[in-house]
Amino acid sequence: MENNISLTLKVWRQNGPKEKGRFETYKLEKVSTDSSFLEMMDILNEQLINDGNEPVAFDHDCREGICGMCSLYINGRPHGPDDDVTTCQLHMRKFKDGETITIEPWRSAGFPVIKDLIVNRNAFDTIIAAGGYTSVSTGGVPDANAIPIPKVDADEAMDAASCIGCGACVATCKNGSAMLFVSAKVSHLALLPQGKVEAARRAKNMVAKMDELGFGNCTNTGACEVECPKGVSISNIARLNREFLKAKLQD
């Protein structure tokens, strides 16, 4: 049932990439438990604007859990206290009346803060550019049904491909490793005959790029899998390691 709750928000404010940040505390009254977390942020911003202050900058777009744009570290968890959801799908019914909520940006060397809660995740695009594709150009490809693909492989590829590139795995990792993200892409493509051709080379190039961009090493703590809103499995990391080894052996 719908209820109204009052909240204290401790929000990270930071004017620009080079400025020092700080927490600011805000009070919000009568927030409907049916509203989403980002709608609660909208209400906060409306209040800030009406009081003559600058609203809090945060990333979001689809508000359906698919674009991967929203982020936020909420009470110490990426995407907040609910499981298997992004911040935009988190609803206020997960919070109690009178609760204090701490809201921070992703914190990771690979993702510098741009403003307030917004970080720069361009590194993910750079990693994909290093090899996260099949090297085919438009046109001149075979019929879609020319190569049958076992349903289990297609389904498994789909599961890996459902990564939304949000970066929660990196944000939650004590080493700031991007292995879950990279392995999801390597797996997605390695599982399909169209992507298998370049699988080893792809794994090598993407991992090299990841290392170069300052992401940490994977020490198999499994924290990433727990926080991934799309349930991307760490078994993908094992597959990445296999492809990576193959590439090394071929060298």
Partner: peptide, 22 residues
């Protein structure tokens, strides 16, 4: 039809039947 061919070549994991076809 060309679009579907193109996407499959890119590795788009469309749903498949048990026989392996789309």
């Amino acid at each position: 039809n060309d679009i579907i061919d193109q996407c499959v070549a890119q590795g788009v994991p469309f749903a498949r039947e048990y026989g392996g076809l789309l």
